[in-house]
């Protein structure tokens, strides 16, 4: 710790808190807009109304988008979590230079701009007939989300003592038993964090979705994108409020998982 905080540091502290509020606060403007009684995007003046939430939860289009997004995100997150976890364990066991090269390649979907990924998927999916299909989006989202799981699980594995695995094997457990009953329980926080990240990555994904979906598949981000572009219907604001709520819940789950992991370690 620093011995004494200077004046500059005190000013910077206030400034930083202001900046952090600036990062979160603008999103909250969706709340008053969603409560406007008017038919167009506006701030409520004297009365509040829940009509746009009512519309959000009764309109077949929005409900269908919610269900589609949830289906695609849950499936992609499940695939990404399984593949990413297995791969992380595999790379951890290999721990060689070749393994690290493979890891770098597997992380590419994370760093390559989504617009380029969208092009690549689009070009591949048109001849395969996967455009505007659930399967196509699920596959694309799995590829995009798996690196996140790979990262979180690898971080957990870094703190796992390999001797535990050896002990389990020496005591006669098979690879599979060791994997399920020794390795997985110890890296569970990483797997759970990865699953949450993967879910959010798919749930929020818009750029690749814009290219791969047309009429059949119409996810929530896609509907929001259109709503924002048209810039008239306050239902978008209600949807934004619901999304912020989901984000906060997901964050709380993640924070709890992290805290439990920390208390277990110490």
């Amino acid at each position: 710790m620093m011995q004494k905080s200077g004046l500059g540091q005190k000013i910077n502290r206030v400034w930083a808190i202001f900046l952090l509020v600036f990062l979160v606060a603008p999103a909250l403007v969706a709340l008053p807009v969603s409560l406007t009684p008017k038919r167009f995007l506006s701030m409520p003046t004297d009365t509040l109304s829940l009509r746009h939430f009512e519309k959000l939860f009764t309109s077949p289009e929005w409900i269908s988008s919610f269900v589609q997004s949830a289906t695609i995100a849950l499936t992609s997150a499940a695939f990404a979590t399984i593949l990413g976890t297995l791969c992380a364990i595999g790379l951890w066991r290999i721990s060689s230079r070749a393994g690290e090269v493979v890891r770098a390649f597997l992380l590419l979907p994370l760093v390559i701009p989504p617009i380029i990924s969208a092009m690549a998927f689009y070009r591949l999916f048109v001849p395969l007939g996967l455009i505007d299909s659930y399967l196509g989006l699920m596959l694309a989202h799995t590829v995009l989300a798996a690196p996140l799981v790979l990262i979180t699980v690898s971080a957990s594995l870094a703190g796992f003592d390999p001797r535990l695995e050896q002990a389990s094997r020496n005591l006669g457990a098979s690879s599979m038993t060791t994997l399920l009953r020794v390795i997985l329980p110890s890296i569970r926080p990483g797997v759970l964090a990865g699953a949450v990240f993967a879910f959010i990555a798919s749930w929020d994904e818009i750029v690749v979705t814009l290219f791969l979906s047309k009429f059949n598949v119409y996810t929530l981000p896609r509907r929001m994108w259109n709503g924002i572009r048209e810039n008239t219907d306050p239902t978008v604001a209600a949807a934004a409020v619901v999304l912020i709520g989901i984000t906060i819940i997901a964050f709380l789950i993640w924070a709890l998982v992290q805290r439990r992991a920390r208390t277990q370690n110490s």
């Binding site: 979160v24 603008p26 999103a27 909250l28 403007v29 969706a30 959010i200 929020d204 818009i206 981000p221 929001m224 994108w225 924002i228 978008v236 604001a237 934004a240 999304l243 912020i244 984000t247 997901a250 964050f251």
Partner: peptide, 10 residues
């Protein structure tokens, strides 16, 4: 974590 769409809308 807040969706980029939500933030852009705001």
């Amino acid at each position: 974590w807040i969706s980029v769409l939500v933030r852009t809308f705001s």
